[in-house]
């Protein structure tokens, strides 16, 4: 190796070096610290060189030809899988470089084809490893970033949504480490909102599993942040036109109404406020099913009374006040369904 760094390494050489160093690093056990430090150093250097090749550096713009070769080498040596598998062993800067290399490759386009997306589609294990990354503090945030990068592409988002691993996110958003929980939540939200039609179909097809088995847990979580974010996202999901069927189904279930009515009286004003935005959908529904109507009728007086005192200090929020006035009017005018 020349004294002043391997400046003119070809993509083939870089990928080969990386593979060798990475496999060696992976084969070492915990006691071989010295060897590991050397290998880890090599890995990071090569990763940096690869990153600079992809993104260009101060004195070298990225070259399309070279990058095509580099991508090809990465695919044929299964480097993406290797990198995600061994991510915990790579040092801090190296991990960041991995995530940048990953997103650069993912955005590659040849005509209408996205080669990296196809590559990962054929290797669902990569997605699984990334998802499991949330369990490990060392790599959770890097994995989260890569997952969201995958989520930009409908094909990958579909695989993530329809895999069993998706339901693990319901646990990750509640972990006690705040940055991991919130990172997991943004991945969760991205998956459920980014590709409208895909998400709508997914929610419709898996309604029970998502809302009854899992989402409910978030809404009654002891964790204030989880509960509030989940409630806010629920409001957004229900009011998105694409999720019309899901909304209709959700607001027909009296248990959901009871939950929201209890949350209107939550200790936290913010939870109350978010709950209001879900509660309003139940009331505004022109075709209320009988059980829903009955609950509202039974609580008519109390609801009117409650709502007229509800967050009266929000005088500057015009939309909220309009909606509140509308709800009070609706509830006042509620009449029992006529039996035919």
């Amino acid at each position: 190796m020349p004294l002043f760094g391997g400046k003119h390494k070809t993509p083939q050489e870089l990928v080969r070096n990386l593979k060798e160093a990475l496999t060696y690093l992976a084969s070492l056990n915990d006691r071989e610290e010295k060897k590991a430090a050397k290998a880890s150093d090599d890995v990071s250097k090569t990763l940096l060189a690869i990153k600079n090749m992809l993104y260009g550096s101060v004195d070298q713009d990225p070259q399309t030809e070279v990058n095509t070769q580099l991508a090809q080498e990465m695919y044929s040596s299964e480097m993406l899988l290797l990198l995600t598998e061994n991510l915990p062993k790579i040092d801090f800067e190296g991990k960041k470089d991995v995530s940048q290399i990953f997103s650069n490759l993912l955005r590659r386009k040849i005509g209408t084809r996205m080669p990296t997306v196809d590559h990962i589609c054929q290797r669902p294990r990569i997605l699984k490893i990334l998802m499991d990354g949330y369990k490990n503090q060392e790599v959770a945030l890097n994995c989260g970033q890569m997952l969201r990068e995958c989520c930009r592409h409908e094909d990958l988002a579909r695989r993530l949504l329809y895999s069993e691993d998706f339901y693990k996110l319901f646990k990750y958003v509640e972990v006690s480490t705040f940055d991991i929980a919130s990172d997991a939540f943004s991945t969760f939200k991205d998956l459920l909102t980014r590709h409208k039609i895909l998400c709508a179909e997914f929610l419709e097809a898996n309604y029970d599993k998502v809302f009854i088995d899992h989402y409910h847990e978030l809404l009654i979580s002891d964790n204030y942040v989880t509960q509030r974010q989940a409630l806010k996202l629920l409001g957004e999901l229900l009011l998105d036109r694409h999720n019309f069927t899901t909304m209709t189904r959700y607001i027909s279930n009296p248990d959901n109404l009871k939950l929201m009515m209890n949350m209107l009286r939550s200790k936290s004003r913010n939870i109350q406020f978010e709950a209001f935005h879900v509660f309003k959908v139940f009331v505004a529904n022109p075709n209320k099913p009988k059980p829903i109507l009955e609950i509202l009728l039974r609580n008519k007086e109390r609801l009117v009374d409650f709502l007229s005192k509800f967050h009266n200090d929000r005088s500057e929020d015009e939309q909220f006040n309009d909606e509140k006035a509308y709800l009070i009017k609706q509830i006042k005018e509620l009449k029992p369904q006529e039996e035919h």
């Binding site: 386009k109 040849i110 005509g111 209408t112 409908e154 590709h195 409208k196 039609i197």
Partner: peptide, 15 residues
């Protein structure tokens, strides 16, 4: 077309 058909159209996806 629907919006998702437009999104998945090759002209839309093409670089």
């Amino acid at each position: 077309f629907t919006i998702s058909q437009i999104r998945n159209h090759d002209w839309f996806r093409k670089k």
